[in-house]
């Protein structure tokens, strides 16, 4: 962390937390992610009004209203597009997309890929619980192929979506995985993700206690990466494709070119443009 340590941070948890109480089930991993987000923002001393949290649909996407930042709770899967519009229009804001595995990888899969590819400076935080919670336990793109559910008895038979590898191949500039049971570890990943230019993708394994109670044991399964992050996509790609999906840490820190824009609304002089049309 290249930040001079303050005596006392100007901001704390309370500065980011709104009075709206989450509707998540007690025990949900998302509470840990929320904590991580607030700790990261406080560490970075980002004024809440300079932060915009953009989301789509699903349990994870309820986060914006639980914060004291500017929030946008939009339609299913499209948050990366909303965030792109906002960041291009208002580059000085810190833009964070909060999403889930269904929102980001299924209905929003195309936007996920293209947000990675555009590499606009923002952070995508996906709370991955391998299930649809808001609609009562359907398989998500990251559910194991044999996970039994009402809608897909015996399992879907589909291979899970390798989100980090897809992000790498698509052009994301920072790729990491965390676990909600380690809020400080996730806070650290978020700080790095927010600070790193371009599109940062942080997957946080976040157990669903209602539809996937067995995920409580993820705390025994996750293990920190034993190697340093790399800026070599080939190395990162090999690691990600041979990983068991439970390694936490930073996999890729790239220096791919970012897409940015500025929008100035002050010029109302259309004369030159109109003269071009004159006969």
């Amino acid at each position: 962390m290249n930040k001079a340590e303050p005596l006392v941070s100007r901001y704390s948890h309370e500065d980011y937390k709104s009075t709206v109480k989450p509707i998540w089930c007690p025990g949900c991993g998302h509470f840990g992610v929320e904590t991580s987000l607030f700790r990261a923002l406080a560490y970075l001393e980002l004024p809440p009004e300079q932060v915009a949290i953009i989301s789509g649909i699903g349990c994870s996407s309820r986060i914006p209203a639980y914060t004291q930042c500017y929030g946008f709770h939009g339609v299913h899967g499209r948050a990366p597009a909303v965030a792109t519009g906002l960041k291009l229009a208002r580059p000085e804001l810190t833009v964070i997309v909060t999403s889930g595995d269904g929102d980001a990888f299924s209905i929003g899969g195309n936007h996920f890929i293209h947000a990675c590819r555009r590499n606009v400076d923002m952070t995508l935080l996906v709370m991955d619980n391998e299930v649809y919670g808001m609609t009562k336990g359907q398989p998500s793109p990251t559910s194991p192929a044999d996970w039994d559910s009402k809608i897909a008895p015996g399992g879907t038979g589909f291979s899970p979506f390798a989100s980090l590898a897809v992000a790498l191949a698509s052009g994301a500039n920072f790729i990491a995985r965390g676990f909600s049971g380690d809020p400080n570890g996730v806070a650290r990943l978020l700080v790095e993700a927010i600070q790193h230019p371009g599109f940062s993708f942080v997957q946080v394994l976040s157990p669903c206690v209602t539809y996937r109670p067995e995920e409580r044991f993820w705390k025994k399964t996750v293990h920190p990466s034993s190697v340093e992050s790399t800026n070599d996509p080939a190395v990162a790609g090999h690691r990600l494709l041979s990983d068991d999906g439970f390694t936490t840490g930073v996999f890729y820190v790239g220096n791919r070119p970012c897409y940015s824009a500025t929008v100035d609304t002050s010029n109302h002089d259309l004369r030159a443009i109109e003269e071009d049309l004159a006969l």
Binding site: M1, K3, E5, P6, L7, V8, S9, G27, G29, F31, G32, T35, R39, A40, Y43, S180, G181, D182, P183, N184, G185, A187, R188, V191, P207, V209, R216, K219
Partner: peptide, 23 residues
């Protein structure tokens, strides 16, 4: 007291000891 980065505290577990763990 001065604050440290969240991950710089010397806890024995992922979380500080007096907090009911996430989950």
């Amino acid at each position: 007291p001065r604050t440290l980065a969240p991950w710089d505290y010397q806890w024995q577990d992922p979380e500080s000891p007096e907090s009911i763990p996430v989950g």
